[in-house]
Design a protein around this nucleic acid. Sequence first.
DNA 1: TTCTTCAATTGACAATTGTCACAAAATTTA
DNA 2: TAAATTTTGTGACAATTGTCAATTGAAGAA
Lengths: 192, 192
Amino acid sequence: MGEIDNFRNYLNQVISMDGHSFGLAKPYFQVEKIGKGDYLVTEGQKCNKIVYINKGLFRIFYLKDGVEINTCFCKDKSITSSFKSFINQVPSTEYIQALENSVVVSLSSENLSKLQNESPTWQTIRQLLTEKECLRLYDRATSLSFESALEKYKYLLNYHPEIIQRVSIQHIASYIGVSRETLSRIRSQIRD
Amino acid sequence: MGEIDNFRNYLNQVISMDGHSFGLAKPYFQVEKIGKGDYLVTEGQKCNKIVYINKGLFRIFYLKDGVEINTCFCKDKSITSSFKSFINQVPSTEYIQALENSVVVSLSSENLSKLQNESPTWQTIRQLLTEKECLRLYDRATSLSFESALEKYKYLLNYHPEIIQRVSIQHIASYIGVSRETLSRIRSQIRD
DNA sequence: TTCTTCAATTGACAATTGTCACAAAATTTA
DNA sequence: TAAATTTTGTGACAATTGTCAATTGAAGAA
């Protein structure tokens, strides 16, 4: 059960976790393999779970006039979900797709609620994970408000270099809101 | 105590509030008047409180190379804070300034923690307020990722028309990330 | 390996937006 | 009220970015 141990280690970074609280949750975890290109969540489907990524990489995107707009890259040893769907209990407007062969541990909204009732630790975990997502969105909004494409790309380079290494240019371009061509030119400019 | 009753009504929309839980909190509330142009939070200062705006309007901005960048407008009958500072307990990187003469009710981080320990209702309130902030940031990131200045402005017009009525053009321009001149031209274009 | 397919780059040109300068309008102050 | 200050609007031009088309490069399949 290496996946679940890793999940536990991840949670321990967020809040120091007593054995009992984690033990309560073990029967609720579900380990899944998601092949490259496959979907964890699709539009119209309720996202009733939070997902710990043990291995792999995902992107979140939505369709705007038929064009895919990337809004997030989620790498291993972190948590992903379609939070808007999860929080509001409404169908997702976005897709979560594996960019690499991945292994995840998921915990359903229903089971998380049960855990929160049984143990205050899980209530705190939920609070802290929500805060983490808040901070992530704050950073994303900040970087999107940078004026030039160059600045946006440099921000990624500084703060999320792993993303640039593992994700294709076209997806990064969509993420920072410029055309692939523009991003390509920025990169060649930076190389000099 | 009209301000505090209004705050209670606001919280009731978020979670139905028993009299006891709210009663616990009453001694912790602090009512303040903030004059137009004055600051609720400034850079470098820890933002150790959440603030219910009973009357008035605020903007949140940060300085980028000496230029003010607006990131949020907070109107009456809602809650504001420098959440990044509040969550991480670090000095704020942003300013919260009153755009109109305002009256607020504030609750310190310290007292909120006390309330959370005394009553699970307040723990839930904190969770729900954090989720609300998450959804707001999600929407902001979405609107910032729209390509053209026209689209960004139309998004505001559709979803936050009150902002456009109450906030000056220069501040809105900074918020959506275009120059005042461009926004001015967009407006004259829409008038036709 | 070679072929096939998809991703990334580059050029040319058009569209959008920013910058600067100044005029007009609105708001504040005396 | 008039004067001063701030905000908004507009023209001219430069810089940035998008779009389309063609080329180059890289990764996977036979």
